[in-house]
Nucleic acid binder design. Structure first.
Lengths: 334, 334
DNA sequence: AGCTAGTGGGTTATCGATTACCCTAAGCGA
DNA sequence: TCGCTTAGGGTAATCGATAACCCACTAGCT
C-alpha cells in the first residue's frame, strides 16, 4: 500500500497535521527545517497525495466529468477534450470522459460519472444537434457542448453554422464565383443552418438564389462511411449540365474529397475551373488533398475551453445558447 | 450536498450497515421488505454511490489509468480507449486518460494519475515506438500499449509490423503484381520492421528483391501535415522511369491519398495500371478514396482490450513483447 | 515578575462506505 | 424448560486528508 501522511508523520516524529501543512502549504507557520525534513521523507517514501481521501472533506474530486454521446470516436472529440483539459489543468483539475457508446439511458451514464464526484459535468455531442436530457439531469449538467438542450434549460455552446456558411459563401463570391452549388449534409441541424447562411449570402450579393442548388450528399441518413454517397452523381450531373457551377461548397472535408475525385474524373481543374470549399478542417484530409482544401474549421477547441471556464466559474450563468465562430483556413482550392 | 448512506439510514430507521447491504448486496441476510424500503428511499433521495469513500477502504478507485504520450489527438487513440473501456466496463471500472501533451516528465504525469489511486496504469504511444520509462515507473505501469519499454521490463503490446507487411506484400504478389515499390515512413520503428516484412515476402516469392525500391514518404522527419512530402515526386519519377511499378505499397492511408492524386495526374488507373495498398485503415480516408483503398488495419482496439485484461488479471505476467496481428481490409485498390 | 503576542505544532472530529464483531429474538428439538 | 441455531440488524473501527481548536514556549514590554 502507498505511503500516507500518517506514515510520514510517524517517521518524522511530528503530527499528521504538520505533514499536511508542509506538503500542501496549509498553515504558513512552520519552521523551514521541519518542512524540508518532511518533504525529504515524503520523497523517500514515494508519497503520492490521495485525492480520494482529500475529496471526502472537500465534497468533490478535482474532476470535470464529460459525458459524450459517442464522441470520443471522432477526431473532433479530441479537440473538445483538449480545450477542456487545458482550462481544467489551470485549476489543477483533470477531465474524466465517459461515452454513451450506444447506451440509450443518459441518466444511467450520468450516474456512473457522478459516482466519482466530479466538481462539474459537461455533456457533449458528436455532431451539432438538439438533445433531450432527462429531467433529473438538468441540475447535474452544467454545460452542453456542440448541442443544445431541447427546452433550453442548460447553457449551451454550439458552432455558429449559419454564420460560417455565410462567411465562406461570401468568400467564394468575392473570389468572383457566380454559379455556386452546395452539397450539404441532409437531415441534421448543422445542414439546415448552413443552408440558411448560404442563401443569405447569395441574396445579399444580389445573386439569383433560386438558381443555386443545395443538394444532399447522401440520401436521408447521416453522412457516414456506410451511407451510399450521392456526391459523384451530383457532381457529374451538374458539371455536364447546361449551366455548370464554378464553385462547390461541401458539407464536410470528406464530401470535398469525393468532389475532388469526381472532378478529376471529369477532367476539371481545381480551382481554375471550379473552386471547392467545405466545413470541418479535418487536417489529415484537408491538407493532403491536391490542391489543399480551403475549409471552415469547427470551433471545437474553443468550445472545450469555454465549457471548462463556465463550469469552474463561481457564479451561475444564464442558460442561453452561445454560438461560437468557425475559423476559416485558407488553402488553395478557391 | 449529495445524500449519503447515513441520510438514508436515518430516514429508514435502520443502521448504515443495513443500508449498505441493501444497496450493494453486502450480507445476504436481509428481509426483502427492508431491502425494498431502503432502495425506495435511496431512489427518492437520488442517492449516488460515493466511490471516493468506498476507495478509502478498498485502497484504490475502480479506474484504469491511461497515460498517453500525445495519443488522445489521434483517431487511433480512440480505438485503444474503446478497447480498454469495453474490457474495463465488464469489471465495473472506468478508464481515466491523461496525456503528456508535450510535457517531458513522464514521472510527473504518472504521479498526477496516481493521485487518483487507479487500480492499474497503462502507458500508450501514439505511434509504434520504443519508450524509456523512468526507473520508478516500472513498478507502476502494468502494460505498454503500442510501444515497448527500452529495457523490456514491462509487458508490451505492439502491432506485428513485419508480419503485416509480409502479408500485404504476399497479397499483392498473389494478385499478379511483379514490380513492387514501397513508399515507407522513414525514421520510425514501424517503417523499419515493415521494410523487413516487405523484403522477406519478395525473397520468398523468388522476386528480385534488390530491384524493388523502398522510398521515404518524407525527408527524415515523422510523417505529419507539416513535413514536406516527397510522395508526388517519387511517384512521378518511378512511373515515368524505364521500369514503372505495377503495385505501390504505402506507409499509411494519407500517403496512399497522395499517391492516388499523383497517379491521377499522370493518367494512371487504379488498380488496372497500378495497385495501391497501405497501412492504418483510417476509415474516413480509406473508404472514401476512389477506388476504395485496401489497407492493413492496425490492431488498436485489440491492444486496448488485451491491455485491460492483462491489467485486471490477478496473477502477474512476464514482461514479454506481444506482437498483435493487423487485419487486412480488402477494398478495390488491388 | 506578570502579561501579551506570536511561533510551532499537537488533538481530535469529520467526510462516506465498509466490515469485523456483537446482540436480540424467534423457532425448534431434546 | 434449556440450549442452540439462524435470521436480522446494530456498533464501532477504519481508510487518508483536512481543519477547528487547543497548548507550550519564548521574546519583549511594563
Amino acid at each position: 500500500m502507498a505511503a500516507s501522511l500518517n506514515d510520514i508523520a510517524r517517521i518524522a516524529g511530528v503530527s499528521v497535521k504538520t505533514v499536511s501543512g508542509a506538503l500542501h502549504g496549509g498553515s504558513a507557520r512552520m519552521a523551514e527545517a521541519t518542512r524540508e525534513r518532511i518533504v525529504g521523507i515524503a520523497a523517500e517514501l514515494g508519497y503520492v497525495t490521495n485525492l480520494a481521501a482529500r475529496s471526502m472533506r472537500q465534497g468533490w474530486m478535482p474532476l470535470i466529468g464529460l459525458v459524450a454521446d459517442d464522441l470520443i470516436t471522432s477526431p473532433f472529440a479530441t479537440e473538445i477534450i483538449r480545450g477542456l483539459d487545458s482550462a481544467a489543468r489551470s485549476a489543477d483539475m483533470a477531465v474524466f470522459a465517459m461515452t454513451l457508446g450506444g447506451r440509450r439511458d443518459v441518466g444511467a451514464v450520468l450516474e456512473e460519472v457522478r459516482r466519482f464526484r466530479p466538481r462539474a459535468i459537461a455533456y457533449a455531442a458528436m455532431y451539432h444537434k438538439t438533445v433531450t436530457l432527462p429531467d433529473a439531469a438538468k441540475d447535474v449538467v452544467g454545460v452542453m457542448i456542440n448541442c443544445q438542450e431541447t427546452q433550453g434549460r442548460v447553457l449551451s455552446l454550439v458552432p455558429d453554422e449559419e454564420g460560417a456558411a455565410h462567411e465562406i459563401t461570401r468568400y467564394l463570391i468575392e473570389a468572383d464565383r457566380r454559379k455556386l452549388a452546395f452539397i450539404n449534409l441532409p437531415g441534421i441541424l448543422a445542414g439546415e443552418l448552413r443552408e440558411k447562411g448560404f442563401r443569405r449570402a447569395l441574396v445579399e450579393a444580389g445573386l439569383d438564389e433560386a438558381a443555386m442548388p443545395v443538394l444532399p450528399a447522401v440520401r436521408r441518413a447521416i453522412y457516414s462511411d456506410r451511407a451510399p454517397s450521392l456526391v459523384a452523381h451530383h457532381v457529374a450531373t451538374m458539371m455536364q449540365g447546361p449551366n455548370p457551377p464554378d464553385a462547390l461548397l461541401c458539407g464536410n472535408d470528406r464530401v470535398a474529397m469525393e468532389v475532388y475525385a469526381a472532378l478529376h474524373r471529369l477532367g476539371r481543374r481545381i480551382p481554375d475551373d471550379v473552386a471547392v470549399a467545405s466545413f470541418d478542417n479535418q487536417v489529415d484530409i484537408a491538407s493532403r488533398l491536391d490542391p489543399p482544401l480551403t475549409t471552415m474549421a469547427l470551433p471545437h477547441r474553443l468550445m472545450g475551453r469555454m465549457a471548462a471556464d463556465i463550469l469552474l466559474s463561481a457564479d451561475p450563468l444564464p442558460p442561453e445558447v452561445r454560438r461560437l465562430p468557425f475559423q476559416m483556413v485558407e488553402r488553395r482550392s478557391v
